[in-house]
Amino acid sequence: MQVNDEIIDKLSNLTKLTFNPQEKVAIKSDLEKILNFMEKLNELDTTGVEPLIYINEDVNVVRADEVHYPISKEAALMNAPLKNADYIKVPKFVKGTKY
């Protein structure tokens, strides 16, 4: 698999990661190596094999639908980089809204 700039740009948008031109060269080559390594799987015939998705054997593990408050609002806000008493603050992202 050849990795071009277009793929990196698309993934960069999906992953919310940015790469400067120098880093872009490095990630392109790294990703290409990793994908080539992964492509070894193509040697194996998997015709008719169902994908294995869940490793746990129990299906539909349920519990009573009870409301718990394991964490207070204060505790939940404790690590926010920017906040007021009730909310996490982020830069403005809707036009006309005050930050």
Partner: peptide, 29 residues
Amino acid sequence: QRRIMSGAFVLSAGYYDAYYSKAQKVRRI
């Protein structure tokens, strides 16, 4: 960052079956 990028690639449209689904089949075997 490398692993997040690789993971996003194998899950992305057009490559999902060839990489992710393929690996899940190998996992079953």
